[in-house]
Design a protein around this nucleic acid. Structure first.
Length: 254
DNA sequence: AACCCGTGGGG
DNA sequence: TCCCCAAGGGT
């Protein structure tokens, strides 16, 4: 849920979710569509599908218990470099470098002295962050949590609160005079009018309906037929929507 | 590697 | 208003 989504928005959904599905087998026992529905408006609903798939895998291949091994975590759908390491470090208290957007920014500034716009995590990145961790695994996990908090609350993207930063005196970015972002920066992908928006509108209708929805209802959410059909086809391809009859759609039943 | 995938809050 | 940004992953 936290992937690309602010913590404050995740919290209420997370509580409701765990109240209903406290264990992977509990989630796996329900249709994937229920996961998509419970996901609500968190965004990127494919994550709900993958989380459900991960619950099925955990139930069938790991006796219902989340694996504590990095390699096995990485094999779960929807679990990538960040999530696997976060689970191994924070849930299982193992010593692993954890790099999310906050750690990336904090280390980029404090160590490298520049705003790092990259999102991909390289071996070098992992080695650098690992070199910052205490040797003791428990202390390392606490340090990783501290890096993330520092990046999320103090060393923020827009207007960093350097006056409140505990490592201000040792910060390479401070020393360099807080240089602005280098390069062209990432292009913010516009959202209004994109397929993503249309997909969101279509899925919202299906999420809020307890019964299958007819084509003409879906058609009413977007007035460009070509784009609308493309968006629906995409949702079908992703498995977020299924056709229960010709021209009748619903969230996936199993 | 570049691009796709939602949504909402804050500046 | 518009733009930026958010505990990324898959292809």
């Amino acid at each position: 849920m936290l992937q690309q989504t602010p913590v404050n928005r995740v919290l209420p959904v997370w509580h409701t979710w765990l109240d209903r599905w406290p264990t992977p087998p509990a989630l796996a026992a329900e249709p994937a569509g229920e996961a998509v529905r419970m996901w609500g408006r968190l965004g990127y609903p494919r994550r709900a599908l993958r989380l459900h798939q991960a619950a099925v895998t955990i139930t069938e291949e790991h006796r219902g218990s989340i694996p504590d091994d990095l390699e096995q975590l990485l094999r779960l759908p929807g679990v990538g470099t960040y999530t696997a390491r976060a689970v191994a470090a924070f849930a299982f208290r193992q010593r692993h470098a954890v790099i999310d957007v906050n750690v990336r920014r904090f280390v980029g500034r404090a160590i490298n002295g520049r705003d790092d716009q990259r999102t991909a995590v390289s071996r070098q990145d992992l080695e650098l962050v690992e070199s910052l961790l205490p040797q003791d695994a428990e202390s390392a996990a606490r340090a990783s949590a501290a890096f993330m908090e520092l990046g999320a609350l103090v060393c923020v993207a827009r207007a960093p609160r350097c006056v409140a930063c505990p490592v201000r005196q040792e910060c390479a970015w401070q020393r360099a005079g807080s240089p602005a972002v280098e390069g062209p920066g990432r292009r913010a992908q516009s959202y209004a009018g994109t397929d993503r928006q249309v997909r969101g509108l279509l899925l919202a209708v299906l999420r809020e309906s307890r019964v299958p929805v007819r084509q003409d209802i879906l058609d009413s959410v977007w007035d460009k037929p070509v784009q609308r059909d493309r968006a629906l086809r995409g949702l079908l391809d992703d498995g977020l929507v299924v056709a229960v009859a010709p021209g009748v759609y619903a969230l996936p039943g199993e």
